[in-house]
């Protein structure tokens, strides 16, 4: 047995590194990296001033503002609702629990266009929810608020699925100790559970935020897409392309790509932090 493991040590026994590595890298290069490089090159093809000018456009800046604010607000709501769902799903046993647990993945599986028209119909002034909010003076559909609602739908599962495993693995003895020392439920939650769950919660929040920045399908139906008011950044790319302004579209795409890179690094750091805790 010892001999076998000693023989198995040099990993060269397993063939296929060359073939699998070639397939992986060439596919990535041809289908992902090269196209992205072509976008960056196109954005700079008329020089840096043209690149900056394309981004400094008032309508583009307004779109960035709306997109970031909506994604941020939606991520906060997703974090609160997601924490609640994760808590209830891991801590309590009640009829329908597994059903709700499965339903949390719905936004991952439901095509974004379907979510988009469904949310629009729900929150339109004559819709099931919109009609209830209308007398209160709250208009959701075709306003920036609608963008937020769509992004909450999209972001929710990220938070739940990030926090759930942490709450499941939380050792009971710390809570027990706190309880024996006379801590109230609220104190236990704030002092024992939240510190343990915080890294995962922040990771989920950031993932929901990052996803919200690039989301398109579920947003454009409910947003109303009014220039300067409720236009999201991905929509501006589409508009620029429709006008054959390839450089402008590429500049916005490149800016979004840079934001994605930053978010990716932040999420990686957060996950490492959460894993270390």
């Amino acid at each position: 047995m010892a001999q076998a493991s000693a023989l198995g040590r040099p990993r060269r026994v397993i063939p296929g590194l060359g073939l699998s590595f070639t397939i992986t890298t060439s596919t990535l290069a041809a289908l992902v990296l090269l196209p992205l490089a072509a976008m960056v090159a196109m954005s700079l093809s008329k020089g840096l001033p043209a690149f900056v000018a394309a981004l400094a456009d008032r309508r583009v800046l307004a779109a960035f503002r709306v997109t970031i604010l909506a994604a941020l607000g939606a991520a906060v709501v997703s974090a609160v609702c997601g924490m609640l769902l994760a808590w209830v799903l891991t801590r309590y046993r009640f009829p329908g629990r597994r059903f709700i647990d499965a339903a949390v993945d719905l936004p991952f599986a439901l095509p974004t266009a379907v979510a988009g028209i469904a949310l629009t119909a729900l929150y339109a002034p004559n819709g099931w929810i919109g009609a209830l909010l209308e007398p209160l003076g709250i208009t959701v559909a075709f306003t920036p608020l609608g963008i937020g609602v769509a992004l909450v739908f999209v972001g929710l599962p990220f938070v739940v699925r990030a926090v759930q495993p942490i709450l499941e693995d939380l050792p009971a003895d710390e809570e027990e100790a706190a309880r024996l020392l006379g801590a109230t439920r609220t104190q236990i939650f704030l002092r024992v559970i939240m510190p343990a769950a915080a890294p995962a919660l922040i990771t989920g929040f950031t993932m929901a935020f990052a996803r919200g920045l690039g989301e398109y399908g579920s947003v454009i139906f409910i947003a109303g897409n009014k220039p300067m008011l409720s236009e999201i950044v991905p929509l501006l790319i589409v508009i620029q392309l429709d006008q054959y302004n390839y450089v402008g579209a590429a500049a916005i795409g490149t800016a979004m790509l840079m934001v994605s890179f930053v978010m990716l690094m932040v999420i990686n750091r957060l996950q490492a932090w959460a894993a270390a805790r």
Partner: peptide, 14 residues
């Protein structure tokens, strides 16, 4: 981590 719109955009740019 990239917006799906960018996945389409790069094809048009190429």
């Amino acid at each position: 981590s990239v917006s799906p719109v960018i996945a389409g955009l790069v094809q048009v740019l190429l």
